[in-house]
Design a protein around this nucleic acid. Structure first.
Lengths: 143, 143
DNA sequence: GCTAAATATGTAGCATGCTACGATTATATA
DNA sequence: TATATAATCGTAGCATGCTACATATTTAGC
């Protein structure tokens, strides 16, 4: 472990640590990080209609995962859905008024988190990090 | 999302992708990645006695998480535990014969995975990646 | 047009992470 | 020594990821 799988394990630690910290902060909004990311995405889509499939593709998770998160968001009245009349297989997901308001409430948090994450790194280093991670990601996808 | 939380989300994608790919391969050994990491750790500890607390500290997860994984490993007869007679609060975790054999069976897989992950990167680039990730990790821990 | 295949969503059950609460044992302090 | 605190492990219940199976609708091929 110490010699092998070192970076893989390290990346997992970072991912889980970010999730824990974010969930602590998001608790006051009655949200989790995965739920918040979906709210952000729905807001950023603006006028573009969003289906479950769109969410699956963007977040690279399976549809049961998306359904679970959306059910909890609907239970808290942050999103709602409508059946698409053109293709009856599709559900279109919308932010509610409450969801839109929450988005703006969290906007400051959203913008400062990545800044804190990248503290002490030059923009060249950030670019380098993204490039190195992209290589690693491509390698893993081919395993 | 696209502008903010970009690297945080990317790191999550990488971590989950590695987990999915590893779990596919490990399926033939009746193991998951989290379970395999614990087997590796137990083997690397060699003669050092390992408690639940040691596992919690190394893997940076809570004890209910470790208990769950160990229960599944015990159910498959890969590990066993004994009560520590000096401190009755402690359980000592051991690999069984079956667990030790599995370790050697998986050794090749263990060694090639990180190599595949790092394909196309020079050792300087790997060092740079580790250094950049360490900075990010420290930043996140202070949030 | 009809049937087969593909696509989108739903449900059940599992693994792994968490928090919150409890039980037992060790340690520290009055 | 006696009691309070700390440390370790256990259980319950939840969120988020998965696979496998099911259903409904659309699309493609004959």
């Amino acid at each position: 472990m110490q010699q092998n799988d070192e970076i893989g394990f390290f990346i997992k630690l970072i991912s889980e640590c970010l999730q824990k910290k974010a969930n602590q902060t998001l608790k006051e909004f009655d949200l989790t990080l995965s739920q918040a990311r979906i709210l952000f995405y729905l807001h950023d889509r603006n006028e573009t209609q969003t289906s479950l499939k769109d969410l699956e593709d963007f977040f690279e998770v399976t549809h049961p995962t998306i359904i679970g998160i959306l059910n909890r968001l609907e239970g808290k009245d942050f999103v709602r859905n409508e059946h698409n009349s053109k293709d009856k297989r599709l559900k279109t997901i919308f932010l509610t008024e409450k969801g839109i308001n929450l988005f703006f409430t969290m906007d400051h948090f959203r913008k400062t988190t990545e800044r804190k994450m990248m503290q002490g790194l030059t923009s060249d280093q950030i670019t380098e990090l993204q490039s190195l991670l992209t290589t690693v990601y491509k390698n893993i996808q081919e395993i």
